[in-house]
């Protein structure tokens, strides 16, 4: 039996029904006008600068705009909360982190008569200068430049206490 010899007459009659399916009256009246309007709108949009096209694209996709706005707002809120949390942690860690330095600053005026054969923390020779000297006063240095432990993500690591290699003698 060849394909053509198969009897599809009843099916052919049934499929004739499909030819009677028609869109709503007047549908084709302005169909071509809609197509041409969309073509001309696209041509006009193509001549606009890129930032105007971007805004036009946003107009066409309100759902995407809402989603992006929510995402950006969420990121801002998250960033602010993380920043405030970090500030709290930094405040909590501050005394212990700066303790040795403060102690050093207070201790440094060691009596010259002290017989210390080892390394000692030297007093600032000039307060006005040493206050700005990061080696003497690490608080004066921008902490971002000396993120000791920060590079490794280690918390609670304080900056090393600067020492003076001056060994006092008893002359």
């Amino acid at each position: 039996m060849t394909p053509e010899s198969e009897n599809f007459e009843e099916l052919r009659r049934l499929l004739a029904l499909k030819r009677h399916e028609q869109p709503p009256p007047g549908y084709f009246t302005d169909f071509s006008a809609k197509v041409v309007a969309r073509i001309e709108a696209a041509q006009e949009a193509a001549q606009l600068p890129w930032w105007r096209r971007a805004f036009l694209g946003l107009d066409a996709k309100p759902a995407m705009v809402c989603a992006c706005s929510l995402a950006i707002s969420g990121l801002v809120v998250l960033g602010l909360s993380v920043a405030s949390w970090n500030d709290g942690v930094a405040q909590a860690e501050l005394p212990s982190a700066r303790g040795p330095v403060l102690v050093a600053a207070e201790v440094t005026p060691a009596p010259a008569t002290a017989q210390v054969p080892t390394l000692t923390i030297a007093p600032p020779r000039d307060t006005a200068v040493s206050a700005m000297d990061p080696l003497v006063n690490p608080d004066s240095a921008p902490r971002e430049l000396f993120p000791i432990g920060g590079f490794l993500g280690i918390r609670g690591v304080s900056a090393p206490t600067p020492v003076n290699l001056f060994i006092p003698t008893n002359h």
Binding site: R13, H20, P23
Partner: peptide, 18 residues
């Protein structure tokens, strides 16, 4: 979302026979 059948459908000989 089907389109409506036109008026001629009821008078189509094939469909009347069907």
């Amino acid at each position: 979302s089907l389109d409506d059948l036109d008026f001629n459908a009821e008078h189509d000989p094939d469909l009347v026979a069907l």
